[in-house]
Amino acid sequence: MSGILDTVNLRTQMVGQNRLELLLFGLETEQIYGINVFKVREVLQCPALTEVPRLTTAIKGMAHIRGETIPVLDLSEAIGRPSVPKEELQRCFLIVAEYNKRTLAFLVRKVDRILNTHWDQIMAPPAEIGVENYLTAVFEHDGKLIEILDVEQILADLYPMRTNVSEEIATKEVKTKASEYHILCVDDSSVARNQMQRSLEDLGIKVTTCNNGRAAWNMLNDLTEKGVDVTQHFLMMISDIEMPEMDGYTLAAMIREDTRMDKMHIVLHSSLSGGFNVSMVKKVGADGFLAKFNPDDLAGVVVDRIRKIESRR
Results as ranks from 00 to 15, higher is better:
136 T>I: 11
162 R>L: 08
120 D>N: 15
121 Q>P: 05
30 E>H: 11
141 H>K: 10
112 D>A: 08
128 E>W: 06
157 D>I: 01
96 V>L: 11
33 Y>I: 00
56 T>N: 14
97 A>T: 13
120 D>Q: 13
48 A>M: 12
131 V>C: 09
24 L>T: 08
87 E>L: 09
132 E>P: 01
112 D>Q: 12
108 V>W: 00
34 G>K: 01
37 V>P: 03
29 T>V: 04
140 E>Y: 07
129 I>N: 06
105 A>G: 11
61 G>M: 07
104 L>M: 15
161 M>A: 10
40 V>D: 03
87 E>W: 10
23 L>Y: 03
145 L>R: 13
92 C>L: 02
121 Q>M: 10
19 R>D: 15
140 E>M: 12
118 H>W: 11
165 V>E: 03
36 N>K: 05
56 T>C: 04
128 E>S: 14
105 A>C: 12
82 P>H: 07
165 V>I: 14
132 E>G: 08
75 L>H: 02
106 F>L: 15
109 R>C: 11
160 P>H: 10
162 R>I: 06
28 E>V: 05
150 D>F: 02
142 D>R: 09
141 H>N: 14
41 R>E: 10
120 D>R: 13
131 V>D: 15
164 N>H: 12
149 L>G: 02
22 L>E: 05
23 L>F: 08
101 K>M: 00
93 F>Q: 10
124 A>G: 08
